[in-house]
Every structure is written in C-alpha cells, then in structure tokens.
Amino acid sequence: MSRFYLIGFIMLMLFDTLAQVSFKMASIYAMPLSFDVTWLIRVFSHPWIYGALIGYLGAFLIWMNLLKHAPIGPAFAASHLELVCVMFLSIWLFDEPLTMTKVLGAILILAGVCFLAKDEEGDQEHEAVKIKS
C-alpha cells in the first residue's frame, strides 16, 4: 500500500503543480484584463488555460481516490507539497525572489508532512501490537 501512496502523492503533486503553473501562465497571456468577449476568446485560445483545467481535474480525481485509502492527516499534509514545488518553479520560470519567508514556509510544510507520516506510522505499529496481543 505504501507504493500506492507514493505514486498517488507524486501524481497529485504533479497535477497540482501543472494546474498552478498553467494558471499563472494563462493569467500572463490574458493581460490586459478586460471583461468582454475578446478577452474570453484570448484566454480560451491559449493552451495554458487547458493545462490548468487538466491539472485541476487530474488533481481532483487523484485526491478523491487517495482519500478513500490514505489516512487523512498525512494525506492532507502531503497534499501541500505542491506549494514547495510551485515555489521553486516560480523562482525559475517567473523570476520570483526566494525569500526567507518562503524557505521557512517550505521547511514547515516538509516538517509537517514528516511528523504526520511518522505519527501515522507509530499509530499503525501500536495497532499491530494490539492485534497480536
């Protein structure tokens, strides 16, 4: 089952990241902002908006499937790993600055995932001992 989680969370992170980066790219190409038909045609004629839609749909389907099987605490924490991935891609693709706040946030997200995964592992070991007794 751990391979299922690993593959599932990697796919979730990839789809979430695709959605966020595509949405950012679509917003860049959607400028200047105007609420008219010409603007809508410009937005929907650019492929990045479809990358965002595919990313959101893929992430939703994978997330729903993972929730059927994964413990909610670690699953919820791991679902935020895409924020770290998007941060690094934004630095590379959009020349966004890497600030201490972003680094601290990434560290806290990674620590939260690790702590929740470790806690869940401990709970499973405790349950296995109870069953054997």
Rank of each mutant, 00 (worst) to 15 (best):
S22C: 06
A77E: 04
I72Q: 14
F15Y: 03
L104P: 09
A26M: 07
V129Y: 09
M25C: 09
F44C: 10
S22T: 02
L66N: 06
V43R: 02
N65I: 11
P97W: 12
K130G: 06
M13S: 04
A78V: 02
M13C: 06
D119K: 07
G73H: 07
F15W: 02
P71Q: 12
T101Y: 11
P32N: 05
K68Q: 13
P71T: 04
W48A: 15
Y5Q: 02
F15I: 02
P74T: 00
S2L: 15
L67K: 05
A111Y: 08
L66T: 05
F115A: 10
A106C: 10
D123R: 12
F15H: 01
Y50A: 06
I91C: 10
F35A: 09
K68M: 10
P32V: 02
M1N: 06
A70V: 01
D36Q: 05
M11C: 15
H126D: 12
A19V: 01
E121T: 04
F76Q: 03
L14V: 11
L110A: 06
L61D: 06
D36K: 04
S27R: 07
G8N: 01
L40Q: 09
E125T: 09
A59N: 02
F9G: 00
D95N: 15
A59E: 02
I131R: 15
A77S: 10
A30F: 12
M87N: 04
I28A: 09
F115E: 04
K132C: 13
I49L: 13
R3S: 12
